[in-house]
Design a protein around this nucleic acid. Structure first.
Lengths: 347, 347
DNA sequence: ATGAAAGCGCTAACAG
DNA sequence: CTGTTAGCGCTTTCAT
């Protein structure tokens, strides 16, 4: 038995009306006799009719699809952001076409091209590098494809973006350490490629700003120079270990993310330093795990899901109302979550 | 200035040939004069021509898109699997349309439908529940849409799937604890919905199988009865705490995943028990973090990325060679990673 | 070596 | 209230 595909024509013939009438029945649009509509709906249902969204997309010049350019799927932070995007997409009957750049700017370009060829209605992009693809994006913007940068952005380009106020986050974390009396606070950063991202740069600036307010001008960054190795924990571990072995002093650590904080804590402990008695540690991201390591980690929380949702909303707005509105930069507020690793009261 | 969209017709007019010729030039197919081809290619490039993949999809009845039905994006395990899928998709010039069920069977059905309406060439699915959608999938299979289940499957349905040999994993973990002399080994499981998944059931069976080999018939599962709360760490923490407070005895823990292991360890420590001196703990998944908590966690590693890649390959094969081949069940081998939480020698 | 024409399945403008 | 017709951009068959 040959199960034939059923399209609107098949239904039309079956019922004995025209395709247009079928269309009107299915979409309940225009004037149509209730009886006719009823019959059509029944037949459609009996035949298991399903609209061909590809055909619709071609006709409407609109795919109801968001293109999502991620750096990777595995990070705590990004995966939550992406769920936020998915959530909004589903709620608006949009699909999400996703592809990862894995941090490579050239791959990022290819992906964007692919997504555009598939006629995504707009793109949400976490740009791997703040400079490498500057020209590429500048040209892209001129084509008026709706684009929203997420988490990171490309300085100098006037594009919508939504991100956490990373500078504020870094500031809050560092000021907290300072208020606890810590004065030799180091910034544990991340592998060189990531280090350039606006999110990381922001945290570092916040760190320095807080130091400056307390009259400290010397910023110490641990990471640059360490072997460029994954995972984050390992990188931080070796960066901190190296610093300590060379006789570096510290009584506070602000890690660029929670994973780095775990590595830092382990390095400190391996070196005989106690956390938080000897050294206070603050991370960034507030992973679930951070409440369960020992000591429980003080960290900066970002509204991850919300970030994804805001980006998606922004994009859909652009895609539908036309991109006439001027670009918005949405900054989300981070919050400090105090636990025991910093030595302050906290659960 | 009105920047008009350039399609093959525009190029054709510009060069003074027919659309067909343009087609042949672009695809380098059929007989075409090298000169003509050259001119066409130049114009196409100058005009910034990009193929409309939606139109192509409609014509070819093939979208070069994989539909991915995930349970969520945030787990360590799944996110790595998805990257594997993405990797293979990109390598084969496929797109990945993703949507999450968040564990709800009805939502899962809607997503599948949406992906099918968008004419994905095939679906990779992590089914939320092993039974709820049985009939739905049974019917779906009859339509011959290429489908591959991943990580979990639906018993009784003859569908391709690729998963870890979870029973072996549970067996390896438990046998390891038994060999270390532990005899009161509990299984720390997960919230009720997840508990039914074939992956979890497999781990539990492996656990019991190992116990049986050592003449132990009593299996103790911690979790059922505990408040059904997120995150995993919290759930495990309260399950273990509860057990201990009620005077439960144990000298070994096999946790269904690493996050649960973290929660278990914290509960044990909070209760004055030392890990691994008093209690040996083994997890499942080998998250990066597990090497950096204290004590470093012994755990079962799964080939996550490979799982995603195998699933994607399998799907593409089905989608292209026609789904005439009989369904394959691919089981991947897990490996035990020994660290300190179990008390054996190990880094 | 090139072109004309049909058609993928849907939507919409226009008639009746 | 319903039908006819054209067309979205591409691929392919058949002709020349």
């Amino acid at each position: 038995m040959k199960r034939q595909r059923v399209d609107m024509d098949v239904i039309a013939h079956e019922v004995g009306v025209s395709k247009t009438t079928v269309f009107r029945a299915l979409h309940n649009k225009g004037r149509i006799h209730p009886q006719t509509r009823q019959r059509i709906l029944e037949v459609a249902s009996r035949l298991g009719y399903r609209p061909n969204l590809v055909a619709r997309s071609l006709r409407l010049q609109k795919t109801s699809t968001i293109g999502l350019v991620a750096i990777g799927l595995t990070g705590w932070f990004y995966s939550h952001v992406l769920e936020g995007v998915d959530e909004v997409a589903q709620a608006n009957e949009y699909g999400v076409l996703i592809a990862c750049s894995y941090g490579y700017p050239n791959r990022e370009r290819e992906i964007v091209q692919m997504l555009l060829d598939k006629r995504a209605d707009g793109l949400i992009i976490a740009p791997a590098d703040p400079e490498e693809n500057f020209d590429f994006y500048r040209q892209l913007i001129e084509t008026h494809v709706p684009i929203v940068f997420i988490d990171r952005y490309i300085p100098g380009l006037s594009v919508d973006h939504v991100a956490t106020d990373n500078e504020l986050g870094g500031y809050l974390a560092t000021r907290h350490l300072l208020k606890l009396g810590r004065r030799r606070i180091v910034f544990v950063s991340t592998a060189s490629r990531e280090r350039r991202a606006t999110s990381v740069v922001g945290r570092f600036n916040g760190y320095r700003k807080a130091l400056a307010e307390f009259g400290i001008s010397e910023a110490v960054e641990l990471g640059p120079g360490a072997p460029d190795v994954a995972p984050e924990e390992e990188y931080a571990y070796s960066a901190v270990s190296c610093y300590l072995q060379q006789g570096g002093q510290l009584d506070g650590v602000f890690a660029v993310n929670d994973d780095a904080a775990y590595g830092a804590i382990r390095a400190l402990q391996a070196h005989g330093l106690r956390v938080p008695e000897d050294v206070s540690v603050v991370g960034f991201d507030n992973q679930d795990t951070s409440a369960f390591i020992s000591p429980p980690l003080t960290t900066v929380a970002q509204p991850m899901r919300e970030m994804g949702m805001r980006a998606a909303h922004l994009l859909l707005e652009k895609a539908n109302r036309g991109s006439a509105t001027p670009p918005q930069q949405i900054l989300l507020e981070p919050t400090l979550v105090i636990r025991r690793s910093c030595g302050a009261a906290g659960k």
